[in-house]
Amino acid sequence: GVTLFVALYDYEARTEDDLSFHKGEKFQILNSSEGDWWEARSLTTGETGYIPSNYVAPVDS
Rank of each mutant, 00 (worst) to 15 (best):
residue 36 D to G: 04
residue 26 K to G: 04
residue 35 G to A: 10
residue 14 R to E: 14
residue 26 K to F: 04
residue 39 E to D: 09
residue 43 L to E: 15
residue 54 N to P: 03
residue 61 S to D: 02
residue 27 F to M: 12
residue 38 W to D: 02
residue 22 H to C: 10
residue 1 G to K: 15
residue 1 G to D: 01
residue 28 Q to M: 10
residue 44 T to Q: 12
residue 47 E to L: 10
residue 18 D to W: 14
residue 44 T to L: 09
residue 46 G to M: 06
residue 11 Y to I: 02
residue 51 I to V: 13
residue 36 D to M: 04
residue 26 K to I: 04
residue 27 F to Q: 00
residue 37 W to L: 14
residue 31 N to E: 08
residue 7 A to D: 00
residue 28 Q to G: 08
residue 19 L to W: 05
residue 9 Y to V: 08
residue 41 R to G: 02
residue 53 S to M: 10
residue 11 Y to W: 12
residue 54 N to S: 11
residue 52 P to F: 12
residue 8 L to H: 09
residue 24 G to L: 03
residue 61 S to C: 09
residue 30 L to P: 08
residue 60 D to E: 14
residue 21 F to N: 00
residue 36 D to Q: 14
residue 9 Y to Q: 11
residue 34 E to Y: 05
residue 34 E to D: 03
residue 19 L to V: 09
residue 17 D to E: 14
residue 38 W to R: 07
residue 5 F to P: 00
residue 9 Y to P: 00
residue 9 Y to E: 13
residue 18 D to A: 13
residue 48 T to L: 07
residue 16 E to C: 07
residue 30 L to I: 05
residue 57 A to W: 03
residue 58 P to S: 09
residue 39 E to G: 05
residue 2 V to C: 13
residue 32 S to Q: 10
residue 39 E to R: 08
residue 49 G to T: 01
residue 44 T to N: 06
residue 16 E to G: 07
residue 19 L to M: 11
residue 27 F to Y: 01
residue 21 F to W: 00
residue 48 T to W: 06
residue 35 G to F: 05
residue 36 D to A: 09
residue 34 E to A: 07
residue 10 D to A: 13
residue 46 G to Q: 12
residue 8 L to Q: 12
residue 48 T to S: 11
residue 4 L to Y: 14
residue 37 W to E: 05
residue 19 L to S: 02
residue 44 T to R: 10
residue 57 A to Q: 14
residue 2 V to L: 11
residue 29 I to K: 10
residue 42 S to W: 00
residue 41 R to Y: 04
residue 51 I to C: 02
residue 38 W to V: 09
residue 61 S to G: 07
residue 57 A to L: 11
residue 59 V to L: 10
residue 31 N to G: 06
residue 57 A to C: 14
residue 3 T to H: 03
residue 19 L to I: 14
residue 13 A to S: 10
residue 19 L to G: 00
residue 9 Y to H: 15
residue 45 T to G: 06
residue 35 G to K: 10
residue 60 D to M: 05
residue 17 D to K: 15
residue 33 S to K: 07
residue 8 L to S: 11
residue 9 Y to F: 14
residue 55 Y to L: 12
residue 26 K to D: 03
residue 36 D to Y: 15
residue 53 S to P: 13
residue 1 G to Q: 12
residue 36 D to S: 07
residue 56 V to K: 01
residue 43 L to M: 10
residue 25 E to G: 02
residue 55 Y to W: 10
residue 26 K to H: 15
residue 30 L to R: 05
residue 21 F to M: 11
residue 4 L to I: 08
residue 34 E to F: 03
residue 60 D to Q: 14
residue 7 A to G: 04
residue 41 R to F: 13
residue 47 E to F: 08
residue 51 I to T: 01
residue 19 L to Q: 06
residue 28 Q to I: 08
residue 39 E to K: 10
residue 38 W to A: 12
residue 30 L to K: 04
residue 7 A to V: 01
residue 2 V to N: 15
residue 6 V to W: 12
residue 15 T to Y: 08
residue 3 T to M: 15
residue 39 E to N: 02
residue 13 A to D: 02
residue 30 L to Y: 04
residue 13 A to N: 04
residue 55 Y to A: 15
residue 49 G to W: 00
residue 59 V to Y: 13
residue 20 S to A: 11
residue 28 Q to T: 14
residue 12 E to F: 14
residue 52 P to W: 05
residue 17 D to Y: 05
residue 28 Q to R: 09
residue 20 S to C: 07
residue 5 F to H: 13
residue 16 E to H: 14
residue 55 Y to C: 11
residue 57 A to F: 04
residue 43 L to Y: 08
residue 32 S to N: 09
residue 32 S to K: 10
residue 5 F to M: 09
residue 48 T to D: 09
residue 15 T to C: 02
residue 13 A to H: 06
residue 37 W to P: 11
residue 57 A to H: 07
residue 25 E to D: 13
residue 25 E to M: 08
residue 20 S to R: 04
residue 44 T to Y: 07
residue 13 A to T: 08
residue 61 S to W: 05
residue 43 L to I: 13
residue 9 Y to A: 15
residue 14 R to V: 11
residue 1 G to W: 07
residue 23 K to A: 09
residue 4 L to V: 07
residue 24 G to Y: 02
residue 55 Y to M: 06
residue 3 T to S: 05
residue 43 L to A: 13
residue 9 Y to G: 12
residue 2 V to K: 15
residue 48 T to Y: 05
residue 3 T to C: 09
residue 11 Y to P: 01
residue 49 G to R: 01
residue 1 G to I: 15
residue 52 P to Y: 03
residue 18 D to K: 14
residue 14 R to M: 12
residue 58 P to V: 09
residue 6 V to F: 05
residue 11 Y to E: 01
residue 60 D to V: 07
residue 61 S to V: 02
residue 40 A to P: 01
residue 14 R to P: 13
residue 37 W to D: 14
residue 10 D to W: 01
residue 27 F to N: 01
residue 11 Y to F: 13
residue 29 I to L: 10
residue 57 A to K: 13
residue 12 E to I: 07
residue 49 G to Q: 01
residue 2 V to W: 06
residue 52 P to A: 05
residue 27 F to W: 01
residue 48 T to E: 09
residue 21 F to I: 09
residue 36 D to H: 08
residue 19 L to A: 01
residue 54 N to M: 04
residue 18 D to I: 10
residue 32 S to A: 07
residue 36 D to I: 07
residue 54 N to E: 13
residue 12 E to Y: 11
residue 50 Y to L: 13
residue 23 K to G: 04
residue 27 F to E: 00
residue 37 W to V: 13
residue 47 E to W: 05
residue 40 A to L: 00
residue 56 V to Q: 00
residue 10 D to G: 07
residue 20 S to M: 03
residue 53 S to E: 08
residue 41 R to T: 14
residue 30 L to A: 07
residue 61 S to E: 15
